[in-house]
Design a protein around this nucleic acid. Sequence first.
DNA 1: TTTTGAGTTGTTCGA
DNA 2: GTCGAACAACTCAAA
Length: 488
Amino acid sequence: MSGKRTPETSVKTALVWLRRDLRLGDNPALQAAIDTGGPVFAVYVLDEKRQFSPGGAQKWFLHHALQSLDENLKPLGVLLILRRGDAGKIIPALAAEFGARSVFWNRRYAEDEITTDKKVKAALKDAGIEPVSFNGALLAEPWEIKTKSGGPYRVYTPFWKALRERGPTRRECPAPSKKLKTPPPRVPSDKLGDWGLVPIKPDWASAFGEDWTPSEKDALDRLDDFLHGAINTYGRNRNRPDKHGTSRLSAFLALGLISPLTIWNRTCAAMDKSDVSGSEAWKFLSEVAWREFSYHLLYHNPKIPTEPFREQFKSFNWRSDKKALDAWRRGMTGVPFVDAGMRELWTTGWMHNRVRMLAASFLVKNLLIHWREGERWFWETLVDADPANNVASWQWVAGSGADAAPYFRIFNPVRQGEQFDPKGDYVRRWVPEIASLPDKHLHDPSSAPQKILEEAGVTLGKTYPKSIIDLGETRKRALARYDAMRNE
DNA sequence: TTTTGAGTTGTTCGA
DNA sequence: GTCGAACAACTCAAA
C-alpha cells in the first residue's frame, strides 16, 4: 500500500451502506452521513449468496439504478463504491480502511438481513466505529404499530386502520443538494459492467427498456403522472390489466428508488389540493399499506419465507409436477389469462396484480404445486421482487398466510378473464396465436366449436396448447385436499 | 374473561 | 342475465 488512504484525522469520514434504498431523496442514512460534514463514501455490496439478493430480472433493474445513482451522487462529491462478496466482512473492512468514524444505513427486516446487519454492527463496534441505522423503508416500523393488547396485527384491516390513524412515524428528509466541502479520495471500486447484471446471451431483458427507466427521477415522474391521472379511476381500473390503471411504482419501491413516505406525502398533498378524489387516493395508499403489512409480518414471523404462517398447512399434501410447473413458467398451460400473465412477466419483468393473483392461484390450487415454487419463479423474473411482499402474497394466495382468503375462494381464470379483460385486449396482446378467436371464446378456447377454431387459425394442441387441466375437476380436488388437511 | 362482529381481491348453483 | 345463498369454521381485535 502506498501511504494511507485515511484522510486527515481531524475530518470525520462517513460511510453510507446502501441496499434497497438507491435514492438521494428521503434517504435518512445518506442525509445523516452528509450532515457529518466530512467526506462521504457510499457503498453497495452485491452478495449473491444471501437469501434476498436480487434475482435475474431485478439485477437488470439494479444495474441501471446503480448507474443512475452514481450519476446523481457525483455532483454532490459522494463516491459510489461497488463491492462483491460478504457484506459482513466488506463493510467493516472498508470502514477501517477509510478511517470512518461512523457507518450509516437504513434498516432491513428479514431475518437473514438482520443477521448480516447485526454482524456488521458488532464488528464495527469492536473497531471503535459507530454504526447508525434509520428507518428509510417504511411508513412505520414493525414495533411501532401494535394492537391494544400490545402484539403485532395479524389481520390487514385493523392494521390499516391503526396505521392510517397513526400516520407515518417520521418526517421526510429532502434530497441533499449542496456539494460536499471535502470530497473523499479516490478508492478502487468494482466496475458495474463487470458484474454481469445485464443479460447478454440470451438477452431476455431486451424489451425491459421499453417499460422501465430505472432512475429516481423516473420514479417521481411516474408518481406525478399517476397523481394527475389514473389515481382518479384507481378503484375501478386497478383491477384491469387491459388498462393503465395502476401507478407501476412497485419496481422503484422494491429497490428504494422512491420511498413509501414520499408516495404517502405527495398523495396526501394531491388530496389536500382537492385535485384528487379522497376515496380513490385512500384506496391507493391502502395498497401501499399492504407492503407495510407484509414487512411487519415478515419481521414478527421470521420463518415465513420458508414455513407456512398457519401451522396447519405444514401437513398440506402438495403435488410435484415438473411438466406442469414448466408449462406454467413458460405461459403454455392452455389457459389464456394465466398464459398471458406469465408471458407478460417473462417479457417485461412485471405482471399486473390481478393476473398475479389468478396465475398464482392456478399454480397452488389447480396444479397443487407448492407456493414456494411460485415464489422462487417470481423472485427470479420480477423486476419488483420484494422480500416481504413476495412471500406474504404467495402465502396469502396459498391460504397458508396471515389473513388468508377462505380456502374455498378459488379463482377461475376463465371467469376472471371475462370480468377483468372483457374485450380480450390483454390476452390478445400476450397470446397472439389465439388473437383471432371471437371474444366469446377467447378466454376458454376449448368452448369454441371446431369451425370457429378453424376460422381463427387455432388448432388446440398444435398452435396453442390444450388446457393442461380441467378447471372444475382440479377445483374439487383442491377443496378435497384442503379438507384432508383439516381433518388430520 | 367473555363476547361480539368481522375478515382484500371468489365461484357455483338454483331461483 | 341477475341475484342471493352456500361454501366452514376459525381466528383476530376490541369492547
